[in-house]
């Protein structure tokens, strides 16, 4: 692909309902080549549905756009040929061995020498000694690595990963993300949905979606800046009692305990300043702090709840 478009995913006004319930509402997004795009949002927010619409597994009720330069409504076959989709649930054949699974995929994608390509993929995954083990017998972390290996074996241009690291230990998650960055460095575009903040922070760009609406997008720094959230960190004794009081105090939009400290955030900086003064005492120390991504998302989620649910 010599003239690969710079914008890999470009969709406008996507809508999708199931049984009359709007799951995705008027969603537009762009993803640039070679970027890792994080897709965040609470459970049931429409992340999986959006990913499925992008790779042709679901037909949007309305809206249009392109994926890899192909129309998502009419050229699904071309998109599928060039896209690797890693499903949320392990979806390789549990009763086939690792090698057999990979060879199957090689043949379906019409790879020239699927046996050799499967061998390469197995080596790359570090599964050399276990090629003839049934895929269903692998541990969670290995299943996930295998699934990723299977996705990238046909050399796709776009990778769609639906909560790839759910239920995987931290070390395996770290390795997984190193691999993703390596792939992006090689020119692969990645759209990955996740619930983990540390993973969100490893993305080039993130999009936050709740109740089918895209609420924010940009780099982590941009999203934190856009939020216009003021944050204080409170330390002291008897914070548990303070939580309830603050929750009902005007000017406070979010209270969350973090270990021995309390994160207090509000959209109205002046109002929150007054609250800080009011509750400050020798036992309760209020310190101004930059909001973290989680503060921003939790705040957005509660606002979205008020607006859309």
């Amino acid at each position: 692909m010599s003239e690969a478009p710079e914008i890999v995913i470009d969709v406008r006004g996507l809508n999708k309902s199931f049984d009359g319930k709007r799951v995705v509402e008027d969603l537009s997004m762009q993803v640039r080549r070679g970027r890792i795009h994080g897709f965040l949002g609470p459970n049931g927010s429409g992340k999986t549905t959006t990913i499925r619409m992008l790779c042709g597994l679901l037909t949007p009720d309305s809206g249009d756009g392109t994926c890899l330069g192909f129309d998502i409504l009419t050229q699904q076959r071309e998109i599928k040929r060039r896209t690797g989709y890693m499903t949320q649930r392990f979806s390789l054949y549990a009763d086939l061995t690792i090698r057999e699974n990979l060879e199957f995929i090689g043949r379906v994608y019409g790879l020239r020498d699927s046996a050799a390509r499967a061998r390469e993929a197995i080596e790359r995954l570090g599964l050399g000694g276990r090629a003839d083990q049934l895929a269903g017998e692998l541990s969670g972390g290995w299943k996930q690595r295998l699934a990723l290996g299977a996705c990238i074996m046909p050399k796709p241009e776009l990778l769609l990963l639906d909560e790839p690291t759910a239920g995987v230990d931290p070390k395996a998650r770290r390795d997984f993300w190193d691999e993703i960055h390596q792939l992006a460095h090689e020119g692969l575009t990645v759209l990955v949905s996740t619930h983990y903040m540390d993973e969100a922070e490893r993305c080039h760009e993130i999009a936050y979606i709740a109740y089918g609406h895209l609420l924010a997008r940009g780099t982590v720094a941009e999203i934190i800046a856009q939020s216009q959230l003021s944050t204080f960190v409170v330390s002291g004794d008897n914070l548990a009692g303070l939580v309830e009081t603050l929750k009902h105090t005007p000017g406070v939009d979010m209270v969350a305990p973090f270990g021995a400290k309390l994160h207090v955030a509000g959209r109205d900086a002046a109002a929150l300043e007054r609250v800080a003064k009011q509750f400050s005492s020798p036992e309760l120390v209020w310190e101004r702090d930059a909001p973290n991504l989680e503060d921003v998302f939790i705040d957005m989620m509660s606002r979205a709840q008020d607006n859309y649910s």
Binding site: C55, K80, T83, S91, Y93, V108, Y109
Partner: peptide, 14 residues
């Protein structure tokens, strides 16, 4: 039921 259909459908096969 086993969930493999989702992967199969995402592949270029008719």
């Amino acid at each position: 039921e086993r969930g493999t259909m989702e992967s199969l459908l995402a592949m270029p096969i008719n």
